[in-house]
Amino acid sequence: MKPVFSLTNHNLRSYIYHYLIFAINHDTLIHGFIILSINVIPFRTLRFETASDSHKMVHANASNFAEGVTKDEAYTQVLLQAEGLFEGQRNWVCNLANAASLLWHAYKSLPQPSNQVNWAGFYTLDPQAASSKQQLILGPFQGKVACQTIAFGKGVCGTAAETQTTQLVPDVERFPGHIACDGDSKSEIVVPITVETEGNGEKARKLVAIIDIDCADLSGFDEVDKKYLEQLAELLGRSCDW
């Protein structure tokens, strides 16, 4: 049985969620299409084995994006696919690795400047660093080899980590203290991933990781990127055991 379904943005998440539950219960491979606006995005994500099998088989086509997709549609697919991939999986290495792949393929499906993204990945809080000298350590990514550690407050990544605020940088050369891991990078966006903590009866947000995206073009990112990457950061924050 290979059901095919089409739907618009109305109640999209609810419909997909219940469809995935149907697939789990009926041991079927999902093949369908999500219609967003006037474009069609192929949606092939998960195959679930029998109820006795605890392993989820991931379909590689989750990283496929339709030709001519808009940025909003590509990010929407990233979020939907990520939510499906994270279902039942809370290991942060696994989830960050798949998220990096989804982002990389999404950017490569888009026109310039998005398709000029030359690094997409994550840095995480280094658990071995002293509390007085917090730093980030390289996590899963797509692109060239990168800086291994970055101190809080240093460069775009360190600033995002220390302030827990998104850094949208149209020209990295104009950013004070920019760390040039790759001289080809011209613009950058860094989004903090935080989780809620509680101590002494007070709630606070703890930085656990950052999303880091570099582009070989100036002004490679805008408010659309910021909006969706912050949604991805929130999803990752609550979907992983940090």
Rank of each mutant, 00 (worst) to 15 (best):
P3R: 09
P3T: 12
F5H: 07
S6K: 08
L7K: 10
N9E: 13
R13M: 07
Y17V: 09
I21Q: 15
F22V: 10
I24G: 11
N25L: 12
G32E: 11
F33W: 08
I35Q: 14
I35D: 11
I35T: 15
S37G: 14
I38L: 05
I41Q: 14
I41D: 11
P42A: 13
P42S: 10
R44K: 12
R44V: 12
R44D: 14
L46T: 15
R47Q: 13
R47F: 14
R47V: 15
E49T: 09
A51V: 12
S54T: 14
S54R: 11
H55Q: 13
H55A: 13
K56R: 14
M57R: 14
N61M: 12
S63L: 13
F65K: 04
E67T: 14
V69G: 03
T70P: 00
E73K: 00
E73P: 00
Q77I: 11
Q77R: 08
V78S: 05
V78G: 02
L80G: 06
L80E: 15
L80Y: 04
Q81P: 00
A82N: 06
E87H: 11
G88H: 04
R90S: 15
R90N: 14
W92V: 10
N95G: 09
L96N: 04
A97E: 10
A97C: 03
A97M: 08
L102N: 08
L102T: 12
L102D: 07
L103A: 09
Y107L: 03
K108C: 06
L110R: 01
Q112T: 14
P113A: 09
Q116R: 13
G121F: 01
F122I: 10
F122C: 07
T124H: 04
D126Y: 01
Q128P: 00
Q128N: 15
A130Y: 00
A130I: 00
A130C: 04
P140F: 08
K144P: 08
F152P: 01
K154R: 11
K154I: 03
K154C: 07
T159E: 11
T159G: 03
A160Y: 04
A160N: 05
A161D: 04
E162R: 13
T163R: 13
Q164T: 09
T165I: 01
Q167F: 02
V169N: 03
V172H: 05
E173P: 00
H178T: 13
H178M: 02
C181S: 13
C181Y: 00
D182S: 12
D182E: 08
G183H: 09
D184L: 09
D184Y: 04
K186T: 09
K186I: 09
K186R: 15
E188A: 08
V190I: 11
I193E: 02
T194Y: 01
T197E: 07
E198V: 14
G201I: 05
K203C: 06
A204T: 15
D212S: 02
D212P: 01
I213S: 04
D214M: 05
C215N: 15
C215S: 15
L218G: 05
F221H: 06
E223H: 08
V224R: 06
D225V: 10
D225L: 07
Y228I: 08
E230H: 01
E230Y: 04
L232A: 10
E234H: 10
L235C: 04
L235D: 06
L236S: 05
L236W: 03
R238H: 11
R238C: 10
S239L: 06
C240R: 03
C240F: 03
C240S: 11
